[in-house]
Design a protein around this nucleic acid. Sequence first.
DNA 1: AAGTGGTCTAGACCACATG
DNA 2: ATGTGGTCTAGACCACTTC
Lengths: 242, 242
Amino acid sequence: MIRRSPSLTEQAKALIKQRIFNAEFDEGRIPSETELANELGVSRTTIRDALSRLELEGTIFRKQGAGTFVNEASLQIHTRLEEIWHYEVMLQAHGYTPSNRIIEVTRQPATGDTAAALNIAPDAEVVTVKKLFLADGQPVIFTVNDIPAQYITCQFSADDFHQPVSQFLSVNCQLELGSYLSEIVPLIAPAWLAELLHLPPHPTALISFEEIGYSLDNAPILKATSYFRDDLLRLRLIRRNT
Amino acid sequence: MIRRSPSLTEQAKALIKQRIFNAEFDEGRIPSETELANELGVSRTTIRDALSRLELEGTIFRKQGAGTFVNEASLQIHTRLEEIWHYEVMLQAHGYTPSNRIIEVTRQPATGDTAAALNIAPDAEVVTVKKLFLADGQPVIFTVNDIPAQYITCQFSADDFHQPVSQFLSVNCQLELGSYLSEIVPLIAPAWLAELLHLPPHPTALISFEEIGYSLDNAPILKATSYFRDDLLRLRLIRRNT
DNA sequence: AAGTGGTCTAGACCACATG
DNA sequence: ATGTGGTCTAGACCACTTC
């Protein structure tokens, strides 16, 4: 049986997911929707919602007329790019012990590009946070975050940024990050970045993410650029037909 | 009013989307779900389904208690990476005139990696298709597709691969591509690739996609590697909280 | 023929935002 | 207080797969 809050759908989803990871279903076949509904004492609609979310994540797939099945391949994948992950969690899911180092926190007028992207006045100030993430002590990700100073109404110190920036925004600014619009850009690591990420001396290709973070109201609140060492971190994604 | 097939939900979605692009809604505010349901003569559930899909695409966003709104920023984005696009369509959406050139079609035993990824016998044959896509005559994307020969039961010629590979699989092999699992890998273009893509003489960073394509039954049917010139093509993605 | 997922309905109640 | 989106129900019918 099941109670409210979090929603029945979420609870059903979590429960089914757990059973999947416990390999409780023979040959990857998940019980029929009606069966699950009876078993959990909820309506078929609720079960369908739960299954739809699992399908969207790639955890299961459905075949009309035939049944619902576990997507065995997806069980290996712990972080998908379409979801927002704190880098610490992402590194942990990859099996590393994460940590981070604050490189710099500054406050200065935004550049034209940044101001335009964040929809603030051209001369408005932004707080810029530069941060290095390490996996088992090895540098893997370097991030630059620009936050309009007008959103930060409280006092803060550089150390407040050891936590994820989205968490800082939530706790200190009552701003909830809802989504990112991300652009994937390849580059050859310039010298300063190669040094920071401990890259080998020869030219190395990197992925960078250029992202604008949006609040739940869809207002731009954050500009983020991240550089990944791809030898330690694989970026994965599920693509579907619409 | 509205009729069946495609589903009411799909029709409602398309209709609302069209109204959004026609800018028919004042200040980006979309009528309430009840209003839309009455207007289109369907249930609120159907409208909610349609709106959920639009929300998932990033076309709209919802605020509980407040309403549903157009996501103005998303109107600029024509191709999102989480969706499967034929490269021709992708290039067209970017404003280019697309074309493609078949570089090579071969048939030979799979390499160990490929066989493992495609879940076929180690010595099974694969048909490999190498193809170059051009935007306004400029090379932009180079793709290598491996298809297990056992899936191709009909005669074919190299020219059959001017169409998208997924279309070839659908028409000639009755195999429908349902999803890709993609890995994003940066690289410095080796000489042969630089030549093929007409890259400048100095070392250039590229994005490559290493993908396994799955059928609707979730069986691996295709291995694809694509190399993008990112100066002509921007890869965009919406990331969300789960 | 029987069972599965896919679509759709009508109606209920709740949580939240706004005036 | 009103109206909005969020959750949930019970039940109907359809399309498809499998036996």
